Computed example of a mutant assay.
Amino acid sequence: MPVKDLEKAASSTIRSAYERDYKTDREKRDHIHRQVYGLVDEDVVINGITYPVIDLSVLTTAKYGNVVQFLITAFKAAGVRPDTPFHMNSESKYPVDMANTYRYVEYNVIGGGMRLIYDVTLGNLFLSAHYSDPSLVIASTDDSAEQLELNDIMTSLRLTQRNLERHSDGTYFDGTHDDRLITYARSDSAFRGWLMNKNSGQVTETLKKYGLS
């Protein structure tokens, strides 16, 4: 069921709706993810792929500031998916890039199968529900509160992507970064959280180098 009064819904109500898995076509149609991007009612085409848009500025103007604040808070708290930090885009739901396997960082966000995907190449942020319906998250009003919040989030996402890539491709272990590894972990909470998650498979010696064990 869609949230009946989304404009006045508390964060707990919004979260509960996002966490709800859908099992039927009707539940998928009525899921809050579609409800939210339906409020904006805008599509954008990127590399031939059409995405519905979640425009935080439009939602704020339309008096859904509670939804915007919920999403921003959720994005800030999102953790890198431990076992698959880099989304391989095997279903081609995002622009295909055979050359850069580190292009898309995948985050667990909100719950109930929700995923946040960051595209480092184009600087895009996508929110998806239950492995379908990826939508592009933007804030179209320059210098608005939601635009500034999204800018901060994107800055953090770029930093985390860089740390994940350099960790994963071995750059951080070429002997020239040893005295900075602790700083990298301390300054990036999402990267640090991923390192410390047992499902990311980091060995004790690696954690020691980052000052985490």
Rank of each mutant, 00 (worst) to 15 (best):
Y94N: 11
N47I: 01
D179A: 08
K76P: 15
G123C: 01
M1W: 05
V40T: 12
T84E: 14
H177G: 01
K76A: 13
P82E: 09
D25S: 11
V68G: 07
E27F: 08
K63E: 14
N66C: 10
K93D: 07
I182E: 12
K93T: 01
N47S: 15
V53L: 07
R186D: 12
N197H: 13
A129R: 10
E27N: 04
P2E: 14
T60H: 02
M1C: 06
L71W: 06
V137A: 10
F191C: 01
F86A: 00
Y107S: 02
R34S: 14
A77Y: 02
R20L: 07
T73I: 05
D119A: 04
M154E: 07
V45W: 06
V105E: 00
M114W: 00
A10S: 05
Y51H: 07
A129G: 09
M196N: 13
A62H: 10
Y94K: 12
D43G: 05
D188A: 01
R115Y: 04
R26Q: 09
A185P: 03
N66E: 14
K63Y: 09
V67S: 08
P95A: 03
S57R: 09
M1D: 05
Y102M: 11
V96Q: 06
Y210I: 03
H33W: 08
Q161L: 01
D55M: 14
G48N: 10
N197E: 09
A62G: 13
D169V: 06
Y210P: 02
A129Q: 09
S128L: 13
N100Y: 02
L148G: 04
T176W: 11
V36C: 11
P95H: 03
T183W: 10
G48R: 07
L125Q: 12
S16M: 12
T50S: 15
V36T: 06
D5P: 04
A99C: 08
R166E: 09
T160I: 01
N100W: 02
Q161D: 00
S132F: 03
Y102G: 00
